[in-house]
Each structure stands twice: as C-alpha cells, then as structure tokens.
C-alpha cells in the first residue's frame, strides 16, 4: 500500500499550496488592496498616492454613514434577538413530539430557500399600504386600519427586521432542534423526577447546557447583519430618505454609483473591523475553552 502511494505522483502539499495561493491572492490580496485604496484619494480609477487617513475622517463625518451604522446596530440587535426567540420557540414546540413535525419543519425552513430578493419583494408588496395588508383590511371593511411602517422613515427599519426574522427563524429552529435532539433522555427523566416545570427546565437546565449551539446561531445571524444588502435593495432601497441605509449598501453605492473608490474602500475596511469586533467575544471564548 505504501509503496503504491509512493509510486503515485500525487503531492498533497502542492495541491494545497495552489489552493492557498488562490485564497491568499483573491481573498487576502483583495483585502490588502482595499485597505491600500482607502488610504488614497481614488475616485473612478485607482490613484496610488497615499494621503493618510483622510477618507476615514470623511467617512465618520458623513451623516449617511453614521445613520447606516446606527441602523445596523438597531437592525442587528432586534433581528438577532427576534430570530433567536422565534426560532427557539419553534424548536421547543417541534421538540414536544407534535404530530407532523417534519411537515412543520419543512414549512418553517422553507423561507431560507427563498432568496432575500424574493423575500424583500414579497414583504414589500405585503406591507405597502396601497397594495398590501392595509389595503386588504380596508377593502374588507376595517376603514381605520393603518399599517404604513414601510413608508414611515421612523418605522421602515422594523419592517426589515420582520422580513429577516421570517427568513431566518427556520434556520435557528433546525439548529436548535438538532441540539435539543442531542439532549440525553436521562436528563429529561431527571427533570421529571424533580418535578421541574417545563419552562424552567428549558430556561435553567436545557438551554444553558446548549450554549455552543446558541453561540453558533448568533455568529451565523451576525454575518447576515453585516452583509445585509439584498433585502434592503428589494424592500426599501435605503429609504424613505436614508432611514434604512446600511454599511454594505453604503459601500456598494460609493463604489459603483458615486465612483468614490477611496471612501467606499474606507467603508469596507470599517465593516471588516466591525465584524472582527463583533466576533471577538466568540473567538475569545472558544480559544479559552481549548486551552
């Protein structure tokens, strides 16, 4: 066997090296290049003269960027908490040995198979006061019914939250359900022997023991928050006004529509820094557990 292996010209190190080279060039290379660009005054085409942190100063005095960041925080917190709460609730219900569990699981997981563009369009129609829910309710006789959050600049962000929770709750449900299925049956027996009420059993025994599962869900949802772009494009296009702008949309707009390569690069680099800051607690706890 080993002589046969030796006779083969197969070199795992070479194969892996090529792969690493591709990743290094296109992934980390792009990051470095973006960082370089963020230090220049590039507009449509790259300009290689370094001017320092000018673009970052401009970025953080730009009202639209600040609103984007604030929006991301509001959206992120509500979306992650909402999706976790809803997904966990669904998982708990599915775990109580309900009938036709696999049917419900499919129904709730289905939104994940729908692209965010389609999700956004559907919810836009549904929430648009002139075509959706509000129009329907008024048509069937509830004249005073008003649900116009999509067109109100102080509420539009919450419609994004609703649509994204609908989209992601199924994912959290399946992950948490898998975790619940891994719970030792003896633990449930012990809970019944002690007479612990169901909600306390979940809150104080089961979920605290499933911290890694829930942390994985949070990390997955965080990445959705940071790269959130397509849903906004489909639902609000950042409006009304700039009330639903997000960093990713800001960067894309400045790269391609406003041809300000330097500022867009600075925005991208800030998003990377933000991601690292958000993920730091997770990596820290993982690292600490290993050592």
């Amino acid at each position: 066997m080993s002589t046969w292996l030796n006779r083969q010209a197969f070199r795992p190190d070479v194969t892996v090296a090529v792969f690493f080279a591709v990743v290094a060039l296109f992934f980390y290379g792009s990051i470095l290049w973006t960082f370089y660009m963020s230090l220049t005054r590039s507009t449509l085409i790259p300009n290689y003269q370094i001017v320092g942190l000018d673009q970052y100063v401009k970025l953080f005095t730009n009202q639209r960027w600040l609103v984007s960041c604030l929006n991301m925080v509001v959206f992120g917190v509500l979306y992650i908490l909402g999706t976790l709460a809803f997904g966990i609730l669904l998982a708990v219900l599915a775990d109580r040995n309900i009938k036709a569990e696999s049917l419900f699981r499919t129904i709730f997981l289905y939104p994940l198979a729908v692209s965010l563009i389609i999700t956004g369009l559907s919810w836009r129609w549904l929430l648009d006061p002139t075509t959706g829910l509000q129009a329907l309710m008024r048509d069937i006789g509830w004249e005073s019914f008003t649900f116009d959050w999509l067109t109100r600049s102080d509420r539009a962000i919450y419609t994004l939250v609703i649509a994204s929770i609908w989209h992601s709750a199924g994912l959290v449900m399946v992950i948490v359900l898998a975790g619940l299925r891994g719970i030792d049956n003896d633990l449930w027996k012990a809970i019944r022997m002690e007479g612990i009420p169901l909600w306390r059993a979940y809150c104080q025994v089961i979920f605290p023991g499933m911290r890694p599962v829930i942390a994985s869900c949070v990390v997955l949802l965080m990445s959705e928050v940071i790269r959130g772009y397509d849903l906004i494009i489909a639902m609000t296009k950042g409006g009304p006004g700039i009330s639903t702008e997000m960093p990713a949309k800001f960067a894309v707009d400045f790269y391609f529509a406003r041809v300000n390569l330097g500022l867009a690069s600075a925005a991208s680099i800030m998003m990377l820094v933000l991601s690292l800051i958000m993920l730091a607690p997770y990596f820290y706890s993982e690292f600490r557990r290993r050592t």
Binding site: L187, A190, R192, M193, Q204, G209
Partner: peptide, 30 residues
C-alpha cells in the same frame, strides 16, 4: 401520579446532572 409526586428518587446511568449548574445547585435545585 406524576413522577415527582411519588416520593421517589432516581439515579441514572448517564448521571443526568444539570450541565450548567454547579454541584451545589444540582443538589438544591429540586
């Protein structure tokens, strides 16, 4: 009757301790 109403206690093969609680709390929680 429910298990908790029978005045019994049980020890399991896989111990079935409450994972996120200290030993003290495992003992006192019930």
């Amino acid at each position: 009757l429910e298990p908790s109403g029978r005045g019994l206690a049980m020890v399991f093969q896989s111990y079935a301790l409450f994972p996120a609680m200290t030993v003290r709390r495992n003992l006192s929680f019930g």
